[in-house]
Design a protein around this nucleic acid. Structure first.
Lengths: 239, 239
DNA sequence: CCCCGGCCTTACTTTTACCTTAATTTTGAT
DNA sequence: ATCAAAATTAAGGTAAAAGTAAGGCCGGGG
């Protein structure tokens, strides 16, 4: 199955006109293959044989009810299954959903709604590629690693924790890694109101940062000063 | 998120009674965290900040409509989103589903149906990613063990039980173990309405927690404060 | 119905980690 | 050599958080 619309669907319903209607709707919507069964026995057979990517059941079937059939097929497979029913009683909907159906649509239904719901489910099931849990926000500088979520700096000689100001400043530098950041810009990202005598205040913080992330704070390798312009975090060195 | 019921849900609705009802329903159903927003602005903020695992929108909101909001958030994230609406017109349902909503539920709704539909969707979205079997709901910190199901803290000198607030706070910290959690975020997970003078209230609860889980509450080893930023539960030390 | 006890909240004082200031020294461009 | 920019120190101030105690709320038992 390359796209969700190449899904193979099994429709189980004993009313030929509904089958026909569904086939029409689904074909128009672009679903390529729709196969059908009129009763439980046929459905079981086709399910095993064709291995459809989704199943639509009517609740009332000539040789059993859709609920038990669905439950039975659910044991074997986790493909999307949804009910189509003329019976809109609350308890039926709850039963259907409770058994693990992906939806319960009542007749009469809007063709477009059926298609939307069905494609939504198929998309969820076959494209579950939810953005993988984002990697930890980490800054790697040689042997030094900074984790912004935990505020911890890992160095060869142990762990150090960042203070609030250090955290803000380093983050700003990190966001502009490889580029010069002006003192002014740095201050604005770490302080609310304007800091008056900041010429030194900032420097003192820079110094403290260097003590935490540099091997030798007097000979900075990562947090570099650019005379007359500001500071710069050295671009990440790719291994 | 270890099981689907540890999902964090964001409910966006301007009617306080609906929010309350939903919180009750969802809590009863076992969903761990339900946060709420009253309008689009708040929803956007919370969404970015809290990164919920699912969102429930009302269609009509004071500062915009749910449809556009949903579309906007959908750009950023693929988490399950569903509508809750008093407007059962066909075109609205089609619009909502067409924009990529996972479901469109009309008020009045059956609580159980909401829960079933929501868990079904969450299962579809998150189950494929759940590789590991659901872990015990336990937090282990050195010689201290916290069982969240029973709310019991086992220490070397006996058992202590957590109160409701302590439970909520510790769970939040646990879910973000190793990461800094802001006071604001902590408060939101333990209190429904905004807590006004929470500066101290939260601290007092933190103190009580420390008395229960720390060997020496004055020298915390596990529940650490990050001055100016929040609190942090020390990352589990791998044996 | 009222009292009691557990839990939560408020109000206030004390402590301390972090930030700022200021004074001095070093660096680097011209 | 000169001077401004930046670094370095150490000490003091300050606001955030800790600590403490008392009051308020609510549900269960007498």
């Amino acid at each position: 199955m390359k796209t969700i619309f190449e899904a193979k669907l099994l429709v189980v319903d004993d009313e030929p006109e509904i089958i026909k209607l569904l086939k029409t709707i689904l074909h128009q919507a672009g679903f390529a293959q729709v196969i059908s069964a009129e009763n439980c026995r046929q459905a079981r057979e086709l399910f095993a044989l064709e291995k459809p990517d989704g199943v639509i059941f009517d609740v009332t079937l000539p040789d059993g009810d859709g609920f038990s059939l669905m439950q039975e097929l659910r044991q074997q497979s986790n493909v999307p299954m949804l009910f189509l029913s003329a019976r809109d009683e609350d308890e039926n909907r709850l039963l259907g959903l409770g058994l693990g159906a992906d939806d319960y649509i009542t007749k009469p239904f809007l063709p477009r709604e059926l298609v939307l719901r069905l494609s939504g489910i198929l998309r969820r099931v076959y494209q579950p590629l939810l953005t993988k849990p984002p990697a930890e926000e980490c800054l790697v500088l040689g042997a030094v690693t900074v984790n912004f979520k935990s505020g911890i700096v890992q160095t060869s000689d142990g762990e150090k924790t960042l203070t609030a100001k250090e955290h803000a400043l380093l983050k700003k530098l990190w966001q502009n890694q490889g580029h010069i950041v002006t003192a002014d810009s740095l201050c604005r990202s770490a302080w609310d109101d304007d800091l008056y005598g900041y010429e030194n205040t900032l420097m003192v913080h820079i110094r403290r940062l260097r003590e935490k992330i540099e091997v030798d704070p007097s000979q900075p390798q990562y947090l570099l000063t650019v005379r007359g312009m500001g500071y710069k975090l050295a671009a990440e060195t790719k291994p």
